[in-house]
């Protein structure tokens, strides 16, 4: 290797390191689960944080004792080993106490789970169908249906163009929903199993060919919520994003009217309208 090539390689490495560092310094690091945009997603977030902190406290206690022991009970400090090797009392204590902690966790978890299972009395039902590799949305009460496909350009994916802000998380047609209304989401698939996941709505439901699955959401503030297919579904599994746009009811109605008139409107994969 010539000196210049070494210098070049060094330059690239240094540049890379600098880039990585600046990214670290500037990035608004996404470290944690999103509290999301629904009451259920916030409850899940609190549950997640509760269990996380319980684990942290237990961890600090157990590892604290361990490190204290590692520091003090070293042969190099000239200690003689003790000989005890059981204690019924303490063994009962550390079986029963964790049980109680688990029960304390199970109570709120059960409550949230029961709430999540209750998809009754929704005002709008949307059927979501997974295809290799795009989604189809059908609004059952509205006669609106359309495909939603990744809109990031192949050039961006193959590094021939600079990547946009919503790289891989943008689609040609968003799933539009009204805020403040209970929405039932039915998931199914046409070929293999997919999974419809929008973190901000705390919905992740498998889309299984031949079967429909039910979940629901009630979004409280307008916004754009992005997600992805979460079940490996083949080559382009990483390239079938989900974009949900929540808007006030009036705007949603306008959107529905526009969609009904649009030629994008395909109720089924083969355009069931002609029936």
């Amino acid at each position: 290797m010539t000196t210049s090539r070494i210098a070049q390689a060094g330059g690239i490495a240094a540049g890379g390191a600098l880039l990585a560092w600046s990214a670290v310094a500037h990035a608004d690091f996404a470290l944690n689960m999103t509290p999301g945009a629904t009451s259920v997603s916030r409850e899940i977030y609190s549950l997640h944080m509760l269990i996380f902190w319980i684990c942290v406290v237990i961890g600090v206690a157990v590892f604290g004792v361990m490190f204290w022991s590692i520091y003090h009970h070293r042969k190099s400090r000239g200690v003689a080993p003790a000989h005890f090797h059981e204690s019924t009392l303490i063994e009962i204590v550390w079986t029963v106490v964790p049980m109680l902690i688990l029960i304390a966790m199970a109570v709120p978890a059960t409550k949230v789970l029961i709430r999540m299972a209750d998809a009754r009395d929704a005002e709008l039902t949307i059927k979501v169908t997974g295809y290799q590799w795009r989604w189809h949305y059908q609004y059952l009460n509205e006669d609106v249906g359309f495909f939603s496909t990744l809109s990031t350009s192949p050039a961006q994916i193959h590094n021939d163009a600079s990547k946009g802000e919503h790289y891989l998380l943008e689609v040609d047609q968003r799933m539009v929903v009204p805020v403040g209304k209970k929405i039932r989401v039915l998931t199914t698939a046409s070929d293999v199993i997919h999974s419809w996941w929008v973190p901000a709505l705390a919905i992740k439901k498998d889309a299984i060919p031949g079967f429909i699955n039910e979940s629901w959401t009630l979004i409280d503030k307008p916004g754009v919520y992005r997600g992805q297919c979460a079940e490996l579904c083949g080559k382009d599994h990483g390239f079938m994003p989900i974009v949900v746009e929540a808007m006030p009811e009036a705007e949603f109605r306008q959107w529905v009217a526009k969609m009904k008139a649009s030629n994008l409107n395909t109720l089924t994969a083969s355009g069931g309208k002609t029936l």
Partner: peptide
């Protein structure tokens, strides 16, 4: 009662319920 129709991949039909609910 809501009626839903789906086509599996490679099923060259049109398929739809007469009424949606």
């Amino acid at each position: 009662v809501e009626f839903v129709a789906n086509l599996n991949v490679g099923a060259p039909w049109e398929f739809a319920p007469q009424v949606s609910h």
